[in-house]
Nucleic acid binder design. Structure first.
Lengths: 350, 350
DNA sequence: GTGAAAGCGCTAACAT
DNA sequence: ATGTTAGCGCTTTCAC
């Protein structure tokens, strides 16, 4: 009987391939997984049979026995605004920073045949979903990019003994692996540059102060300025968005009209600040020098292009992924952290 | 013997729950899946047992029998630049447009307990990976956002009879479902608005002309302008990036210094155009009116804020997801298309 | 309404 | 070097 290539047929299984090749299932399994030695001749026969049948191993069946899903969860967690369930996702996915994280994660994972499942944990229900997704074995571990300090997810992950790695040091101490940047060093780079070009009235637009990264950038900046002989640095707090950067810059200008240098804790806020500066007819960098943080796409889209502190987000994301796969392979592994170094990228705004 | 709650233990299975509850596996399965009638009393006992054991159903085992993965692939396909494997991912993930797609997809999928696996198909190997991921049953179908015209993936998906839905009409006809926007209507909105405010020398910055959406926006714009009595519309082609928008605006200004209105085929290019206009000291909207397309985040971040044609990307992404789940549930379903309507959002740039 | 039992497709001992 | 076989944890007839 001729087998039609048109479908309603069930897909071929190992059994089918074995029959066609005239060997046992085990042998076929071996050539597919490259485990053990299999005779050259036989390997060829099996491969031919695989091509002929169009066989593709069933993942569920494989996972069932190997206890590996071959996927990990890429979780963005934060506080969803009650009422508008999707606002959080919308905001985070439109942030170029997250795009870089995703890109770095994918770039590394694709070399290991692992795939990321995108999840948003902005409500208690969503957090439960993440946890159960992992407990079900749907993913072998979680990569967590947390956007707010009180996030309970890291602790829950640890408690459930699920492999997980964070993008940044958690706000409250939790025995969990993470990658991070030396934010203080980055802020120092900005301070040195601003002072180096002669600024004497320098202010800063800080990120949300409940986030450790914001804290560190602020502390690092203040310390460095103090060492340069400037004990007082005016600050305005923003929320890492362009709009909040605008508002912060307005406040700064109103209270300290003589400002000649600004360090914004990320590029998005710097972008906002730039527009306000322009509106007030302050020439950048001639009258006010501006340094951003991150070196994300807005830094290049701005005019003048932003001088900024580069955060190697893609590398960090790749490192985070590698760390996670280590934890997946070796469940006992102790928490580990990897800190990356920032670099100053001098462009036109300072 | 006391069972320690500390782990190296294997996770509880249906069997364990059944034993604790004093019923059969089948019954536990029934209360979990809400299938069939199960006695009230027994339901309670079972639920208690589930809580007590901390049971979570194993997805691989379930998938093996239901033949459903409970995940779908969200694939971004395009041409990767040879040499820099990750550049494509970096570019697409930093595009706010993609963020909106992801957000819309997630928003819908979370209501159905389905999770998206993020994939990039920028090389032949990556395309094969997508195909085999689906054939393996790792995902039940694919959502495809294609960024270039010659993408072979849609046809391959159809050929393999894998459930798939595209974000936009494919460049060459393929019997596949998709959602799309009425781009021509959107372009007409822009033309009408520009003419309505008195512009008489209007040009357009088009998207890459091998992409159907770009073609449609251009055609729609020209047609509408022609109907308003303007048979000739200067055009400059861009690549949907801010930088390409700048370059296009420069060319337009050089060749047609008298321009008083511009329609950019997306907001990113409009943003670039705005900076060039500003550099050339052309007041927007007083001297040159500018209309963008998409209504994505740059539209609000610009100064002046962009008047633009809104594309309901999140709704479209949700619609695409719904369509896919339909196809997954009913394999025989014929290809279907859903076209969304654009709307003009008037802000400050025109 | 509930239980018993037969697989789903695969890998990994264990035999040979 | 290859084959045999016993499950992995679940859903789903089929009896009762």
């Amino acid at each position: 009987m001729r087998r039609m290539s048109r479908s309603p047929t069930t897909p071929p299984t190992l059994e089918d391939v074995a029959r066609v090749a005239g060997v046992s299932r085990a042998t076929v399994s071996r050539v597919i997984n490259g485990t053990r030695n299999v005779d050259r001749k036989i390997q060829e026969v099996v491969r031919a049979a695989i091509d002929q049948t169009g066989y593709a191993p069933n993942r569920a069946a494989r996972s069932l026995v190997t206890k590996r899903a071959g996927t990990i969860a890429l979780v963005v967690s934060g506080a969803g605004e009650p009422g508008d369930e999707d606002a959080f996702a919308a905001r985070v996915f439109s942030d170029p920073f997250f795009g870089r994280v995703a890109s770095g994660v994918l770039g590394f994972l694709r070399t290991r045949g692992v795939h990321p499942v995108l999840m948003v944990a902005d409500t208690e229900a969503a957090r439960e979903d993440v946890l159960s997704f992992l407990r079900q074995g749907s993913a072998d571990g979680a990569l967590l990019v947390s956007t707010h300090a009180e996030d309970p997810l890291p602790a829950r992950l640890v408690e459930a003994e699920l492999p997980a790695v964070l993008f940044a040091r958690p706000a409250r101490p939790v025995p969990i692996s993470y990658v991070d940047l030396d934010h203080q060093a980055g802020a120092k780079l900005a301070a040195d540059h601003l002072v180096g070009r002669g600024c004497t009235q320098v202010a800063t637009i800080a990120g949300p102060l409940d986030v450790p990264a914001s804290q560190d950038r602020l502390t690092g900046f203040r310390d460095a300025m103090a060492r340069h002989g400037f004990p007082y640095v005016p600050i305005a707090e923003g929320g890492f968005t362009s709009g909040s950067g605008e508002a912060a810059m307005e406040r700064l200008l109103a209270e300290h009209p003589g400002i000649d240098g600004v360090f914004a804790a990320n590029d998005l806020m710097a972008q906002g600040a730039l527009m306000v500066l322009h509106k007030h007819r302050r020439l950048v960098p001639e009258e006010v020098a501006l340094v951003g943080f991150d070196d994300s796409s807005p830094a290049l889209a701005c005019r003048p292009r932003l001088t900024t502190v580069r955060q190697p987000v893609e590398d960090m994301a790749a490192g985070m992924s590698r760390l996670l796969l280590d934890h997946v392979e070796e469940p006992g592994l102790r928490p580990r952290s990897v800190i990356f170094e920032p670099a100053l990228v001098v462009r036109d705004s300072a």
